[in-house]
Computed example of a mutant assay.
Amino acid sequence: MNDSVIKNSLLPNNISEERFAELCKIGQLKNVSKNTNFISQGEVPNKLAYVLKGLFRYVYIHENGNEFTKNIISEKQFISSYSAMIQKTNSYFYIEALEDSQILEFSYTDWMQLRLGDSYWDVFLFKILEKAFCAKEKRERELLMLDAKTRYLNFLEDFPDLNHRIPQHIIASYLGIQPESLSRILKKHKT
């Protein structure tokens, strides 16, 4: 692993350079091309990754072709179909690169060996899962309780740098609305 990855502020929050170096030892630096799936729906995943550069989305694709964007993941975050990986079941969703991206990929086996060797990594995982749970709960509440315009404004607040990196149809999918509805919101929002 390149030391510049460790030193150039791409570290996950709340982790020292030394601990990140431990994580890097079990990882492989990989490039993922735009529109490529890191994990595919129906695949039994055996890997997870840390996003060094780029952008991903978790997306469900219905048999009729409709897309539902579950989450958007940018730099300094982990990507995984974690529940499918730990249960050894098929992933229900795709993890798609929205940009040319660079990741640090780990096999689930190596990750488990790291965790079993040092309880620090259990605490680290717990913090990541807590953060993910809080984000999931917020997203569910917004989808159930807020109108589309408010969800869009919250999206801009939650992802201030992503609005111009993500196509409008994907933003609409994330908001749970049709692209035409997002266009109307954008027209009203500009005035």
Rank of each mutant, 00 (worst) to 15 (best):
M1D: 11
D3H: 08
D3I: 10
S4D: 13
V5A: 07
K7H: 12
N8R: 09
N8D: 14
L10C: 11
L11C: 12
I15K: 06
E17T: 08
E17F: 00
E18N: 14
R19C: 04
A21R: 14
A21C: 11
A21N: 12
E22F: 02
C24W: 00
C24Y: 02
L29H: 04
N31V: 04
N31C: 03
V32Y: 02
S33V: 08
K34R: 12
T36S: 10
Q41N: 12
Q41S: 14
P45T: 08
N46V: 09
L48V: 04
L48G: 03
Y50Q: 09
Y50L: 05
V51M: 03
L55V: 05
L55I: 06
R57Y: 01
Y58A: 10
Y58S: 13
Y60G: 04
I61N: 07
H62Y: 09
H62G: 06
E63G: 10
N64C: 06
N64M: 01
E67R: 07
E67W: 01
T69D: 06
E75A: 04
K76V: 06
Q77H: 12
S81P: 02
S81D: 15
Y82W: 08
A84V: 03
M85Y: 02
I86F: 00
Q87S: 14
T89C: 05
T89Y: 01
N90F: 02
N90E: 15
N90S: 15
S91K: 01
E96H: 00
L98N: 07
D100P: 01
D100I: 03
Q102F: 00
Q102N: 11
Q102C: 12
S107G: 04
M112C: 10
R115V: 15
R115C: 15
L116G: 05
D118G: 05
S119A: 09
S119E: 12
V123L: 14
V123I: 13
F124P: 00
F124K: 04
K127R: 13
L129R: 05
E130C: 10
K131A: 13
K131Y: 05
C134L: 15
C134H: 07
K138Y: 07
R139D: 09
L143Y: 06
L144S: 14
L146F: 10
L146H: 10
D147R: 11
R151I: 07
R151D: 11
N154I: 03
D158V: 05
D158Y: 04
F159I: 07
P160C: 06
P160L: 01
L162M: 12
I170Y: 10
I170L: 10
S173K: 00
Y174L: 04
Q178K: 15
Q178V: 11
E180Q: 14
S181C: 07
L182P: 02
L186Q: 09
K187S: 12
K187T: 14
H189S: 13
K190V: 08
T191S: 13
T191W: 00
